[in-house]
């Protein structure tokens, strides 16, 4: 029996302790928002947050998250409402076929929440564990940079973001 917190709720899994976390979430708890793309920790589609850190749930036996806090895509936004990151991805064109999207959103969400920067090169590094075959990443990087800038503006941190903004604009050729 494994006890863990999933999206703020304490859940109990009664199956084998070596069952992969991705299977526990999808089949055990019916949280099919988390996807499986490769089963070996390469594509990142199954990314969830464990105690706030992005983790590939296809590589984690459920016993390893005993007593820990797991967040999945289902924890973001609401039925009628998108989280700012989801909204930015929608508007920038950061989701196409959508299969990598939940994992990508969770990785990016952790980046934004733990104070990651809006520099495209840094964002690319943060997202390097999540493969996307549709977008070429540019629109995803743009969306994450935008949300980080919005976050910094809310915090009144004016110095760093303004410089990062202009660099983003130059590198992505957006001001045209």
């Amino acid at each position: 029996m494994t006890r863990l917190t999933v999206n703020g709720r304490v859940r109990v899994f009664r199956g084998h302790p070596f069952t992969r976390l991705v299977d526990v979430l999808r089949e055990g708890f019916g949280l099919t928002g988390t996807k499986e793309g490769c089963g070996e920790g390469e594509c990142g589609a199954c990314t969830v947050l464990v105690d706030g850190q992005p983790v590939m749930s296809c590589l984690v036996p459920v016993c390893q998250v005993e007593g820990r806090r797991v967040e999945t895509i289902e924890s973001l936004g609401g039925l009628e409402r998108l989280d700012p990151l989801q909204k930015a991805l929608l508007e920038e064109g950061g989701a196409q076929c959508g299969i990598c999207t939940p994992g990508m959103v969770m990785t990016a969400h952790a980046w934004v929440r733990r104070g990651g920067s809006s520099r495209p090169a840094a964002i690319r590094e943060a997202l390097a564990g999540n493969l996307c075959r549709c977008t070429g990443y540019q629109h995803i990087v743009d969306a994450v940079a935008r949300v980080v800038r919005e976050r910094d503006r809310r915090r009144g941190d004016a110095k760093r973001p303004s410089r990062a903004t202009s660099r983003t604009a130059r590198r992505t050729g957006r001001h045209r």
Partner: peptide, 19 residues
């Protein structure tokens, strides 16, 4: 147009075959 199916994909609600 913004993708009409986009919000469901972004929320993990879109149903792929294995879902």
């Amino acid at each position: 147009v913004l993708r009409p199916e986009g919000p469901d994909k972004l929320r993990g609600l879109a149903r792929y075959v294995d879902d």
